[in-house]
Amino acid sequence: MAEQGLKYTESHEWAKIEGNIATIGLTDFAIEHLGDIVYLELPEAGDDVTAGTAFGTVESVKAASDLNSPLSGKVTEINEELPDNLETLQNSPFAGGWLVKIELSDASEASKLMDCDVYEEYLKNQD
């Protein structure tokens, strides 16, 4: 189940916006569909990210998937321990499994993202 209060992308990332900072993660739907996650590649603090483009990669045994940034800005912090503790990503995608924090360059982009209810409706049309 997706969480209220977060913003969602069609590629199953979530963003928690607090002031000018957004925490980014992957939804439980994405985690379940990826299967066993075996590798995670995150950007570095200071990297610029752009809404709708890849900022990292998550890989299961079967395939590699891009992590797309919901919003544009500069990475201020990454969840450094996560790539070596992938079970945290699998077990707790909305909390301990957060990926990066970014300082937003254009807060208005948030209006293009889905609210929780819209995202849950969107999931009904996914396999």
Partner: peptide
């Protein structure tokens, strides 16, 4: 079956 609930790794 591509996998069971245990998953590919297990």
């Amino acid at each position: 079956p591509i996998q069971y609930p245990a998953g590919i790794v297990k």
